Simulated assay, not measured.
Amino acid sequence: MQNMNYYYDFSGQKFEYPISLSINQFDRHVFSRQSSLEISYVLKGSYEVTTEHLSSIIHVHELALIAPYDIHMIKPLQQDSIILTVHLDFSYLPHYMVGDVSHSFTSIICNQKQNKVILEKIQQQLGILFLQIIKGTNNLYELNQVLTSLIYIASHNQKFALEELPLSSKNHENYMKAILFIDQNYQQDIHLEDIAQNLSFSISYASRLFKRYTGVNFVRYLAMVRIRHSLEALLAGKDSIEEIAFACGMNSAKAYSQAFKELYGITPSFYRKQFQNNLKYNKDQQVQSMQLDKKQIELIQHLIVDQLVYQDENMMITKQNDEITYVIKEVSNKQIHQENNQMVIKSNNC
């Protein structure tokens, strides 16, 4: 069950963009696993985080970074807990942007005692992202900058040389042919055997291709493709769930709902209801981008700092109106002097 009072959704997937973001009060006690990188940031209350390799509790303004394909469960410990969830879906990105996903990311907890620098850097990027949403710009290039920054931060500065990228191979070429076949035929009643026959593969070879390059089997990958292609019709609200299911290639509304819940954790009808309840209309009754309301902005206000100019572990520069403030943290042996009407700060540990 979810409380609708704080619900907000920014779904890049509708536009086949890798970033999706939501604020909610979900109460889901099931394990999930997805190909995306997940950032779960507590806005109120506390949550228990469980993965294959860790178990911890995160409190307000702390986060869990969940690596792709890690089985995990995040459940609230108080009824009024609120969480911000960001997904970076690598299936929308070329492999050269993320390297070896299975080894580049690790599930970790970030708070004031552990991974503090990563926490602060992610908070900064979330603030930039929310500032765009509040201003209503959604500039693609600024979003891309946030996306690449979050990927780099989440990789914990791991090094991955260009030369380490897999060379173009016959297997990868065959995989791309299989993906293209699905993109062109997902609305039909297709099976792994159809791909194998159409592309002159053996069934076992086709199965291995999907497992190797997507991390999931053919059936799950096909369901993901169908669900993603159905989002626009689902959110438009004109067709029934059954009509949407058949249009995207599912054989029943029940199969569609089950696949949707596996992917998003809620039913498609509930997902549609949440979206429609949060739609904003202009004076001509045309749908506008969903806007954050006052209660939501209060929750994320500490992230926004709309005057933030620069921040790292040693310095923060903010601008409010015409006033610029420099906050320098734990700097010793500093030398401050003026050169050509400029203030210069030199430090041994900056």
Rank of each mutant, 00 (worst) to 15 (best):
R226W: 05
L222S: 07
R226K: 10
L209I: 07
R220M: 00
V225N: 03
I227N: 05
L222N: 06
A233W: 00
F246C: 10
A236Q: 06
H229W: 00
F210K: 06
F210N: 09
Y221L: 12
V216L: 09
V219P: 00
L231A: 11
F218T: 13
E243Y: 02
S230A: 15
A206C: 05
I227W: 05
S240R: 04
S207A: 06
L234C: 11
L209A: 05
V219G: 08
S207E: 10
A206H: 05
I227S: 02
A206W: 02
R208P: 01
L231D: 09
A223K: 02
A236D: 08
A245M: 09
R228W: 04
Y221A: 09
G237N: 03
R226H: 03
R208L: 12
E243G: 10
R226G: 07
G215S: 13
E242H: 09
G215I: 05
A233Q: 15
G237R: 04
I244W: 00
R208G: 04
E242F: 11
E242Q: 14
A236S: 08
Y221K: 11
E242C: 10
E243M: 13
L235A: 05
A236Y: 01
N217K: 05
D239I: 07
F210D: 10
A236T: 04
R212C: 11
G237P: 02
R212Y: 13
A245G: 14
L234K: 14
R208W: 08
Y221R: 09
L234F: 01
R212H: 11
S230N: 07
